[in-house]
Amino acid sequence: MYLGIADVWVFLAYIGCIAAALLCVGYGLINWKQNGTTPTEEDMAWAEESDKLAEKL
């Protein structure tokens, strides 16, 4: 019995959900500032396309 759960595979699923969520939290925290938030050239071109469309209207 693990935390009252009979089957080790179900216990692994129970722990696995929490572990997967912690992986997401860890990844998010470690990469919180990675790559910066500056848009690339393509992002800018994409935004310009958006502006052009706005002008048309």
Binding site: A21, G28, W32, Q34
Partner: peptide, 19 residues
């Protein structure tokens, strides 16, 4: 989203949300 950073941060919120 604007950059990969936003996606990295969204992973944090999303994981806890789905759990």
């Amino acid at each position: 989203v604007k950059s990969d950073t936003e996606l990295n941060r969204a992973v944090l919120v999303g994981g806890v949300f789905i759990l």
